[in-house]
Design a protein around this nucleic acid. Structure first.
Lengths: 219, 219
DNA sequence: CAAGATTGATTATATGGCCAATCAAAATGA
DNA sequence: TCATTTTGATTGGCCATATAATCAATCTTG
């Protein structure tokens, strides 16, 4: 007979999954739901429906809705951090290559999907009224800001540029977040390629000896 | 006797105010409430309490909560638009002065308060899931983008810069929105003066013949 | 069979919308 | 000038609904 020994659900998933698998599945569904319905209209029932599970299960794996949401944000933050840390690690010692790696990493197809960008902006919108989010984001943001300032300082001393390196770093940081925002908000949503080109245009303007709008100038 | 003929409320306001006065008062309270509690936790009761009025009154002046929120966004948008239009009008014909006016206008103390910035980010977070907001923001954003691109194109042809003017405009636009976001999110919230300096750093990098980090170079 | 995951009915709570009663100010009339 | 009426803003209690949380029963798998 053609019945499988281990009965599967319609979607092919085993009914009983490991703790971590389910948690991740629910987090992914939360991201998708926030992306589709917005933060305010994200309900447990909707998250559960998108995951094809019952809403009671959410309270089993996460104690409260708050937990689910902050664990989702935590996942996004770790994913984002891992991404730029890895990119930087692979970039080698030249500051121009390092900045290029940071800029490209921001538009990596895995972390910069439509859904995730939308979820990020939704979290930003709620962050200032939730100390929990602030506490989580603060250190992560600062780590990134510090590393970026370091790289900018190296570029400034290398190229003998006149500007203050902190100002340059602030321009780049703000622009990167701004592009994410535009990718979400803009009617004429531009592609990731255009986004990257925009970032390098800024880098070229700030550090003309190291960059063109097409990318870093080879050694 | 010292009783006033027209009895006033404890806060000095007449019990009965004109339609427009009340509407504006409720919109202001909505901005404040979104700023303090976030979009998701903004309830009619809370908005009414912050305004010192009963919640029933909101449904009288605005039919639904949706109405109240979209009218609030409309107010913010018109205020923002009026601000940069006026600034541009007062700037004269030189493109460098025009860009300087736009950059400064973005950090005007009236439109760029803590509360309003926070409310803006909250609306951005919800916008993609609400066609109503999209429809309202789209044309306004496009008008601004168009004007900015025009000015950048003039600067590029004036200075003979090598870059594409649309790329420069995109950098500036993204950076301005990014700075607003950072002013809301950042732990080390910087002052509006620093924000303005950052914006001019970008302008100086893009258009070095026209700007320094301190502002536009006089004719 | 035991342990743990999963379900879905149930409960408690919060919130938006509704509305009848109230009240203040303006309009009207004597 | 003062009393009366009218108008429309304002209040607060009420209700229907939505939603998060709970939990006992059920199902899966080892």
């Amino acid at each position: 007979m053609d019945e499988t020994v281990k009965p599967k659900r319609p979607d092919g998933q085993p009914r009983k999954a490991s703790r971590d698998t389910r948690r991740q599945q629910l987090i992914n569904s939360t991201i998708a739901t926030i992306g589709r319905c917005g933060y305010a209209k994200t309900t447990l029932t909707e998250v559960a429906r998108n995951a094809g599970l019952s809403h009671g299960l959410i309270n089993f794996h996460f104690q409260t809705k708050e937990q689910l949401l902050s664990d989702t944000l935590l996942f996004l933050m770790n994913e984002y951090r891992d991404n730029w840390i890895r990119a930087l690690h692979e970039a080698g010692p030249r500051p121009a290559d390092q900045l290029a790696a940071l800029l490209r990493a921001d538009f990596n197809e895995v972390i910069c999907t439509e859904e995730k960008r939308t979820a990020w902006v939704a979290f930003w919108g709620e962050a200032q009224s939730r100390p929990v989010y602030q506490a989580m984001c603060g250190p992560m943001d600062q780590e990134y800001a510090l590393r970026l300032e370091e790289i900018c300082a190296n570029l400034v001393s290398e190229g003998g540029y006149a500007m203050k390196s902190e100002d340059a770093a602030r321009v780049l940081r703000a622009m990167l977040e701004g592009i994410w925002l535009e990718l979400v908000r803009s009617v004429s949503r531009y592609s990731l390629a255009v986004a990257e080109r925009t970032a390098f245009t800024a880098a070229a303007a700030l550090f003309p000896k190291h960059f063109t709008a097409g990318g870093p100038i080879p050694a």
